[in-house]
């Protein structure tokens, strides 16, 4: 887990995002408990309230459930929701790319070229 202090993105959000990715990628079994808020705070060398807020964000998105006195366990993630989450990510990233392309003065065709080149490169890996 990597967190950057001065990136402008709140630390709790960075943590929540990384856990979210791991959960959606299936790295946690259903019902498995995430590390306790204080354990995580110690390992990341941050304050407890930050890890707590990160977990609360995950709970708010339905990824984990809080159990009084025990912590937070991972909810079942059905593949539909998984797919949906990732779909939204693709849309967001592409929207960003389009905006950047506009600033750089690229045409739609040039943008498509870049996407195809990248896809081809990924195929080779």
């Amino acid at each position: 887990m990597k967190i950057t202090q001065n990136s402008g993105e709140p630390i709790y959000h960075q943590i929540a995002s990384q856990f979210k990715n791991d959960i959606l990628a299936g790295k946690y079994a259903q019902g498995e408990y995430l590390p306790s808020i204080r354990r995580l705070a110690k390992d990341l060398k941050i304050s407890v309230i930050t890890t707590m807020k990160a977990y609360e964000e995950l709970a708010g998105e339905g990824l984990v459930t809080a159990v009084q006195g025990k912590g937070f366990y991972v909810n079942a993630q059905d593949s539909e929701m998984l797919k949906e989450q990732h779909l939204r990510k693709v849309e967001a990233s592409l929207t960003e790319a389009i905006a950047a392309a506009e600033i750089a003065g690229l045409t739609d065709a040039e943008l498509m070229d870049i996407l195809q080149t990248l896809l081809a490169m990924k195929e080779e890996e």
């Binding site: 306790s36 204080r38 354990r39 705070a41 110690k42 060398k45 407890v48 006195g69």
Partner: peptide, 14 residues
């Protein structure tokens, strides 16, 4: 000291 405080809080969770 910060480490000590975190350990102290962790020891008896909550």
């Amino acid at each position: 000291l910060c480490e000590i405080i975190r350990d102290y809080l962790l020891e008896d969770e909550g």
